[in-house]
Design a binder for these strands. Structure first.
Lengths: 219, 219
DNA sequence: ATTATCTATAGATCTATAGATAATGC
DNA sequence: ATTATCTATAGATCTATAGATAATGC
């Protein structure tokens, strides 16, 4: 409980010292290694030795920055998800129809299996519990579902079931598409979005229309 | 590669020897321990020592029956899934409407979170890959979807997407309901089944009707 | 002089096997 | 005599820390 001592990052008011920059570089190297391992091996079950080798820092250095492996991977995951959340916000900035905002979220996230497999791998890793915990993307999906209901575009007995099913479908798609990339493509992502819109209570006709509108680029 | 030597189970034609029964009892104890650990801890990440302690057999005995931990857990999982598959077959024996057969499968499987949490835990553990691999329950769901399409009850661009989304929703529900049993009940299981029927292309009206028919008991 | 990093290692697992013991077969 | 089980342990990890070395601050 004493590791990772509290440190004021440079004297207050002073420019960050060279020491602080070096320390930050090392921390970034560790988080970068964790991200690479998550993306390439799809697991957090590696030794600290392997992490520090990948980061190209000494073994003991790990404990200068993190107390446990879980703490490092948590930081790495948070970073990836925050980056993707910001990208999604940017892509949806111009949209107003809640059904379309929900749908773009589904279509773009499903496309990650092909466009950003490293991000997709992280989502599969964090799993359904993450969405349910009300974190970033889960909270976003729930918000879109509630707005869609308020706007009368969705008809749904229970909004929490909308969240569970949406998260389940998207994560299942990512997991299978990551392992069998040749069997899935953008059409499948759009098909799934259309299915989900029907599931939330839209007519087949509206679902079809919304799910195939032009999609903003991933920033 | 030499462990678990091949053994003829008693002389051909002869009754099983006492030795064989003893051996079988020990094997059952190991598989039983694996099932209990899966159900109670929800993980296969335990030491062989803990497994043999739970089974109340000597440590080395493990290697008389299995070469690796994975092999034991695979046998335990197969056993649980075969038992549940048989129960589901029995429950559906009288049904003829493919949409209802699909729907009963979803409703009963979702109910496992409350009625048979040990089975639900195993399903969550095997995950989406299992369904995709065409094993028992996944093959069953795909068959029901195909029959539903052939009968004109489902309208779906791609049957494989029906499988991925069904598996994703059911497993996500089980995972969340196992961890938060107070927040989910039978109504939620039926709501999800209704949502899935809409997703597969049924009208809201038909989906509502099919998803609330009386449900056979779990044998 | 202080702080971060690196090297080396003690201690805590865990797996796989060898050899001893107990149960069954003939 | 044969087969299954059990006990004990060697060898292979892996984590956490102590102490040495290198970099920066004043």
């Amino acid at each position: 409980m004493t590791a990772v001592a509290e440190r004021a990052p440079a004297a207050a008011g002073g420019a960050p010292r060279r020491t602080d920059r070096r320390r930050e570089r090392t921390r970034r190297a560790l988080i970068g290694a964790a991200r690479r391992i998550l993306a390439e091996q799809g697991t957090t079950d590696v030794s600290i030795q392997e992490i520090t080798d990948t980061a190209d820092v000494g073994f003991g250095t790990f404990y200068n920055h993190f107390e446990t492996k879980a703490e490092l991977f948590e930081a790495a995951v948070r970073e990836v998800l925050e980056e993707y959340g910001a990208a999604l916000d940017e892509a949806c900035a111009e949209l107003t129809d809640p059904a379309e905002i929900y749908c773009v979220g589904v279509r773009m996230t499903a496309r990650l299996a092909h466009l950003r497999p490293a991000v997709a791998q992280v989502l599969v890793q964090v799993g359904v519990d993450y969405a349910w915990a009300g974190e970033g993307l889960g909270a976003r999906a729930l918000r879109d579902i509630q707005r869609g209901m308020a706007a009368g575009r969705f008809t749904l007995a229970d909004e929490k079931m909308g969240l569970v099913t949406t998260a389940g479908c998207v994560l299942a798609y990512l997991q299978v598409a990551l392992e069998h990339p040749d069997e899935f493509g953008e059409d499948d992502a759009d098909t799934m979005a259309e299915m989900l819109l029907r599931m939330l209570g839209m007519t087949a006709r509206s679902a079809q229309a919304v799910a195939h509108r032009p999609l903003p680029d991933l920033p």
